[in-house]
């Protein structure tokens, strides 16, 4: 049952990544790679969270793996790594957290009532989670380029 659940998520992560690849007009030859990368990064996040890892760190790990695979994909398909990595990390964007943060802000800008401080707490929590998850997505994607101090993936020696 558990594995079936994970396998199902794998498919959804892949389809979401593929949809964004089509929206961003990624060349057709690169789309299968985007599907695989989106599914891999997303499923890694889900599995880590199952083991009790915090969502922010799990996202960082998932995005970093996507960043590393994107270098290999770039060599394989002769295209810049960002066209693989950006559509692949988008399924991990915390859409519902951002939505709840927005709802919270709308409530907070109204007249204060009894639940005000409670809404304030949850809004700050959702807002910070959204912010740090987005930061981790961007950092994870640029990680391999930073750590190797190369200007182009063509300089990598991959055997």
């Amino acid at each position: 049952m558990e594995w079936l659940f994970i396998f199902e998520k794998l498919i959804w992560f892949g389809i979401a990544a593929m949809g964004f690849a089509v929206l961003f007009n990624v060349p057709a030859r690169a789309i299968p790679a985007v599907f695989i990368m989106g599914a891999t990064g997303g499923i890694l996040k889900v599995i880590l969270m199952k083991f009790g890892v915090d969502i922010i760190f799990a996202t960082l790990v998932g995005a970093t793996i996507i960043g590393i695979i994107s270098v290999y994909a770039a060599h394989l398909k002769h295209a810049p790594p960002l066209i693989f990595s950006i559509p692949s990390v988008i399924p991990m964007v915390p859409g519902v957290f951002a939505y709840r943060m927005m709802l919270g802000f709308i409530h907070l800008s109204g007249t204060p009532n009894k639940a005000y401080s409670q809404i304030l707490e949850s809004t700050i929590n959702y807002g910070l989670k959204t912010f740090f998850i987005l930061l981790c997505l961007a950092a994870g994607v640029s990680f391999p380029m930073l750590i190797t101090r190369k200007e182009s993936v063509k300089d990598f020696k991959i055997r």
């Binding site: 498919i11 959804w12 389809i15 929206l23 399924p91």
Partner: peptide, 23 residues
């Protein structure tokens, strides 16, 4: 050329449905 318009619409809509499932 870009992808045909119907293809873009369908794939992005599928991505939206997957997002909904993931959340």
């Amino acid at each position: 050329p870009h992808f045909p318009r119907l293809v873009i619409l369908t794939f992005v809509a599928m991505a939206g449905a997957s997002f909904c499932r993931l959340f």
